[in-house]
């Protein structure tokens, strides 16, 4: 076991997979010599060489587009996009190609790429460095979408994503990159994609979140001081999401609050609520409530705290649901 934060868990996961499979190639801007702007690839080029950990030109479209071509020709590229706000020029490649290659070739060609990218606000970063676009990727057929919330899951989910035979977008919670430390195994392990994690069991209310907001939810639960028995569910994989785990939990508690950092309209909470309605509507004691960012562009640093959900807003939501 080794005490690790989320960035270090990314590095460990990459190191483990680079060592395990010679076809794994890490690529992106500044990932080599510099070890990544967040040091997520620190030391990997020195250890595995410049052909395995590749500094690319500063061009997001071709980082992802070339990764697609590399995957089609037998490699397992793990591409880094420096901030999720720079993903948009890759979207044509992901939607028009990555998510369709297996389909279009009836499995003759596949696209086992991982696109890692730090996402989310709360660190007073520049414009377009703070967005949460998970719902956009989840709404794209053929892509998987993963968001870890702690070091253990980060290493295990990243390994699972790299071994997955299909394209995976791997969102890393930048705000808590170094905020959580955990003892995690040095040995090889994976956390399977598509499985939610019940962090804490409870009977009164299901609180669902993912990524950096899981920590904020934990703060809210602590502040409740056992006033209610909360079941905290970390979704971990946005697509394909674990509908069964959610239905089981809501069936038990009858009440649910969903928290995400992304804007509300068309956000992934809406999808989860639809799933709850379809599967366990009659178990509900109250409407399911969303605590999300408002439908506005991510504000600059001075106002970002008004945008991001915090423990106080989550507590308000919990009280609202419990008041029914």
């Amino acid at each position: 076991m080794v005490v690790t934060n989320i960035v270090q868990a990314v590095t460990m996961g990459l190191r483990q997979e680079l060592a395990r499979d010679k076809n794994v190639v890490v690529m992106g801007e500044d990932v080599g010599l510099n070890g990544g702007v967040f040091r997520a690839t620190d030391g990997l080029q020195k250890e595995f060489g410049a052909d395995r950990v590749v500094d690319t030109p500063l061009a997001e479209l071709s980082i992802v587009g070339c990764a697609i071509g590399m995957a089609v020709n037998g490699l397992r590229p793990v591409a880094e996009i420096q901030f999720s706000g720079f993903m948009y020029s890759t979207f044509d490649q992901l939607l028009s190609h990555a998510g369709r290659i297996r389909m279009r070739s009836r499995g003759r060609f596949t696209c086992p790429i991982v696109v890692r990218t730090p996402y989310g606000g709360g660190i007073r970063a520049l414009e377009l460095h703070c967005e949460s676009g998970e719902a956009i990727f989840a709404h794209t057929p053929g892509l998987k979408m993963v968001v870890p919330s702690n070091p253990y899951d980060t290493k295990g989910l990243l390994a699972a994503a790299i071994r997955d035979p299909d394209p995976v977008i791997f969102y890393e919670p930048m705000r808590i990159y170094r905020a959580i430390k955990q003892d995690i195994p040095e040995k090889d392990y994976i956390v399977p994609l598509g499985k939610a994690n019940v962090i804490q069991e409870g009977d009164d209310l299901t609180l669902i979140s993912w990524g950096a907001m899981v920590k904020t939810c934990q703060e809210a639960v602590e502040k409740l001081n056992n006033k209610y028995s909360v079941e905290l569910v970390d979704l971990r994989t946005i697509n394909p999401y674990d509908a069964e785990a959610i239905a089981d939990s809501v069936k038990k508690t009858g009440r649910c609050v969903i928290v995400h950092e992304a804007i509300r309209t068309g956000g992934f909470a809406a999808e989860l609520i639809a799933s709850i309605n379809e599967k366990v509507l009659l178990s509900l004691e109250a409407p399911v409530i969303r605590i999300t960012a408002p439908d506005v562009p991510f504000p600059l640093a001075k106002l970002e705290n008004y945008f991001l959900p915090d423990a106080t807003r989550i507590l308000k939501g919990i009280e609202r649901v419990m008041s029914y």
Binding site: G65, C66, I68, G69, V72, N73, G74, Q93
Partner: peptide, 10 residues
């Protein structure tokens, strides 16, 4: 075009 560059690199 980028796929060809990537496949060639691979």
């Amino acid at each position: 075009t980028v796929h060809a560059a990537g496949a060639a690199f691979a």
